[in-house]
Design a protein around this nucleic acid. Structure first.
Length: 274
DNA sequence: CATTGTCCCTGGAAGC
DNA sequence: TGCTTCCAGGGACAAT
């Protein structure tokens, strides 16, 4: 599932291929991928030049010379491939550029979206801070968490609080911070939040180094798989032994989402020493 | 306002 | 073996 590290890996791969290039064709094999009017979208971006390829959280952003942009969200099973994949029926859109680069938006479960963006700033301001950026600080995270009594796991998945963390990296960050996923967000002490901040950065940076986690359908644009899942310690590890203490990794449901954690290493009490 | 629940979507796994 | 049911989860939206 593409989360921040996967989207960043994709961004890094395609940026040198399409930056400065003109978008010459948009093939919509499934026009429901466009949020809004598909024809209006096509005419508004056709034959414009891509000036930059950026990312905010899990959103991949193509900035255009017109000042507008295109936001791509891969959701659960989306991928951006440079060649027609083996399952062409899963391709929902193809973006073609003047230099011959073609991006195939493949998406088995058809939950991904392409959104026309009038103002990048207006689009981005709906999202929380970028966890690898300077604006993501322990103070800011503490300020956000203090407003909520929801489980800290649910808070990490809230893109208004911090952008880019999905289910598997939330589990990994909470393990790294020694924090039980059900800990109320507003019960965390400043010291714990500091450690959580560090854990989030460490987990995401490690995953980017591994070019993302290919547990299911995620692949790099060239079709290769990432290896971040090989470094996972609790995510998708239910029933396996904890790498730290050997206890069996448990799984519970929080808001209909699975949460894998070590019942021995991750404590609910907030007086635990980290 | 804060929080929880529902829906969307498909394929693989599990159960009968 | 073949059918049905459930589950995976990101985010918009509805309900409480």
């Amino acid at each position: 599932m593409p989360e921040l590290p996967e989207v960043e890996t994709i961004r890094t791969a395609i940026e040198p291929l399409i930056r400065g290039e003109r978008l010459i064709e948009i093939e919509l094999r499934d026009r429901t991928i466009i949020r809004g009017d598909a024809e209006a979208f096509r005419s508004s971006v056709m034959n414009t030049r891509v000036t930059d390829v950026t990312r905010r959280g899990k959103h991949l952003l193509l900035l255009l010379e017109t000042g507008r942009g295109i936001a791509l969200h891969l959701r659960m099973t989306g991928s951006l491939l440079l060649k027609e994949p083996e399952r062409p029926n899963r391709v929902r859109a193809v973006l073609s550029f003047a230099n011959g680069t073609r991006l195939f938006f493949s998406d088995m479960r058809r939950l991904g979206t392409i959104t026309p963006v009038e103002s990048i700033e207006d689009y981005i301001c709906r999202l929380g801070p970028e966890p690898l950026g300077d604006e993501f600080t322990p103070d800011r995270l503490a300020c956000c968490l203090a407003k909520h009594r929801i489980p800290v796991k649910a808070a990490l998945l809230d893109q208004h609080i911090v952008a880019g963390i999905g289910n598997m990296y939330a589990d990994e960050a909470l393990f790294e911070a020694g924090m039980h996923p059900l800990t109320p967000a507003n019960a965390l002490r400043d010291e714990q939040i500091f450690h959580l901040c560090q854990a989030i950065r460490a987990v995401l940076e490690r995953a980017i180094t591994c070019q993302g986690a290919s547990i299911n359908t995620y692949a790099l644009p060239n079709g290769e798989r990432g290896t971040a899942h090989d470094t996972f310690r609790v995510a998708h590890k239910q029933g396996a032994p904890c790498p730290e203490c050997g206890a069996t990794i448990a799984r519970l449901m929080i808001r209909k989402r699975g949460a894998c954690y070590c019942p021995s290493c991750q404590h609910l009490r907030n007086d635990s020493t980290v």
